[in-house]
Amino acid sequence: MSKNIGYIRVSTVDQNTDRQLDGVELDKRYEDKISGASTKRPQLQACLDYLRDGDTLHVHSMDRLARSMRDIEDLVKELTGRGVTVRFHKEGWTFNGKMDATQTLLFQMLGAVSQFERSIIRERQAEGIAKAKAAGKYKGRKPTLSPEQVQEIKDKVAAGAEKKALAQEYGVSRQTLYRMLAT
């Protein structure tokens, strides 16, 4: 028996999911409150694992499924290849099998617009941060480690301690550790 499955995503826990798929009758729904920049989202993965041949995945809009065109296209191709219908309600698009040339073109154009919007958001955010920094109102993220801890790490590295173990001990990523050591 085919089922109607909903996937809902907002970027932060403060955002409300009520408007997404409002009025759509669903047998099961999966909800993430996390950025769409990656497809490694717990509820998305659970949803993908649950979907079966004949099911329909309902998503409010393309950008709720993924941010990048490649991710959206890959997910839709994978799902339709498994016999799952994918329906984007805001765009009014339904994919259930091989896309014709017109659908492919429009799909890619809509995805490109979503990526463009995301880029504009990032640019505005960077401009806002730069403006706040210039006004002395934005200090950036607080350092993860105190200057004393950084010196301890440098001393331990000089004494031959393993960097990976130090990163774990101090609760930072290896990239952060290497950045600190470079200063």
Rank of each mutant, 00 (worst) to 15 (best):
S2I: 11
K3L: 14
I5G: 02
G6E: 01
Y7I: 10
I8N: 00
R9M: 01
S11T: 06
D18Y: 11
D18E: 13
D18P: 04
D18Q: 13
R19M: 03
Q20G: 07
L21C: 14
L26C: 10
D27T: 10
R29H: 07
Y30K: 07
K33T: 11
A37H: 11
A37T: 13
R52E: 13
H58L: 10
H58I: 03
H58M: 10
V59T: 08
V59K: 00
S61K: 12
S61R: 09
R64W: 03
I72D: 00
E73C: 08
L79T: 03
G83T: 07
V84T: 02
V86C: 00
G92Y: 05
F95L: 04
F95N: 05
G97Q: 10
K98C: 04
T104S: 05
L105R: 03
F107A: 02
E123S: 01
R124P: 10
E127I: 12
I129C: 11
I129F: 05
A130M: 08
A130L: 13
A132R: 15
K133R: 15
G136H: 09
G136Y: 09
Y138T: 06
K142T: 11
S146Q: 07
P147R: 07
V150P: 00
Q151T: 15
I153D: 03
I153C: 01
K154G: 01
D155Y: 06
K156P: 03
V157A: 08
V157S: 13
A161Q: 10
L166R: 01
Q168S: 09
S173F: 10
R174V: 15
L177M: 04
R179G: 05
